[in-house]
Simulated assay, not measured.
Amino acid sequence: RDSQRRPRRKGTMFSCFKVSDKKKRSVKTQKVKEHRNAQDVRSKYKFGKTLGEGAFSTVKLVVEKTTGTEYACKVMELPKAGEYNASGLTREDIFLEINILCNLNHVNVIKFREFFEEETRVYIICDLLRGGELLEALIRKGSYTEEDARLIFTQLLTGIQYLHQHGVVHRDLKMENLLLTRANDLSEIKIADFGLAKKPIVQKGMQTICGSPQYVAPEILAHSTGGYGPEVDLWSAGVVLYSLLLGFPPFFDKCEPRLFKKIQRGVFPQNGEGWNSISKEAQDIIKKLLLVDPRKRMTPEEARKHPWLTHKGKGNSIDLTPALKDLKEESFRAKADYPE
């Protein structure tokens, strides 16, 4: 029946895209007990204003009635049993992934506290992060050095390492998904938006084409029969670091197919004033993260031991403030020295 076919979605530039596998999965999905709290979500939480809206969910401000504590509540539509939602997930898929995320507990990963299931919706209670997006915080900061970038990137790697140790691959790491706990405080950054997170079946590669165009890893685009693994998060981390240090992403093209070809070639600007202004150690770690072959790409553990992160005295005072101009103008646009 048409209602039971997995929907297909086309990606758009600068937005999260997800295209489902062409073939139905042959591996049996783990059975998950749907979480029915003894009380309705509205009996425990008072709902407030809308904090944000995405393609498949809405985030609302909620207040716990007994404590007065504010949280964020992500509201997602649930498909009927045996059907798929707009993002190509079954009801069982959604509860499997929510169960995984609710068991995560790390200072650099947003905390999922509990969830409530209704017939057509699920309500996920998360920590409320008041600091906003990292990108906005950097713009407000006004001045910026390699030491600031190092502080940010260390936290990102630590969070990725924790996720991978617990078998979770984020698959959509990008600047917009790095949030601050407190306004203007770079010392506590959390990885957020786990809409595409996945706990891969043991010894089985992931197949779904997903991520955000400028951050997607080449092996995701390669359609390999063997699939891809957690290394995709390190590629995205490399794109984030390049953007933090230079003010624009390493791969860009207004034409999405050409963009994907550039990513698959792994050729990015390594010249110009911006590149030459950052330390040699910073250049080296970027190169080792943006390797097309995932087998040669650094792991989180290896990246955290890289000289750029361990030799804290080097590059501390290098002024990256000019990069903020590009970030402020959101000029994730083509530069004159971009390779064609």
Rank of each mutant, 00 (worst) to 15 (best):
Q270I: 07
G315D: 06
L289C: 01
P307V: 05
F252C: 13
R295D: 07
I318M: 08
P249A: 15
S331G: 07
P269N: 13
G274P: 01
F248W: 09
K262N: 09
H311V: 09
D284L: 12
K328A: 14
F260L: 05
C255S: 15
P307F: 01
V267F: 03
E330M: 14
S279T: 15
K312E: 10
D326N: 10
Q270G: 05
L246E: 05
I318G: 02
P322L: 01
G247A: 03
L244I: 12
L246T: 10
A282G: 13
K296I: 00
L289F: 01
T310A: 04
G272V: 09
G315R: 06
F260D: 02
K312T: 14
F252N: 12
P250L: 03
K312A: 10
N316G: 12
L309H: 13
E301I: 04
S331F: 05
G272T: 10
K325P: 01
F268N: 04
L324C: 08
T310R: 07
T310Y: 07
S331M: 10
P250G: 06
G247Q: 04
F332E: 03
D253V: 08
K305I: 00
E302C: 03
S277I: 01
K312S: 12
P257W: 10
W308M: 06
G315L: 06
E273V: 13
N276P: 04
F260Y: 15
H306R: 07
P307K: 00
K312G: 09
I286T: 07
F332G: 06
L244D: 09
R258K: 15
L309E: 12
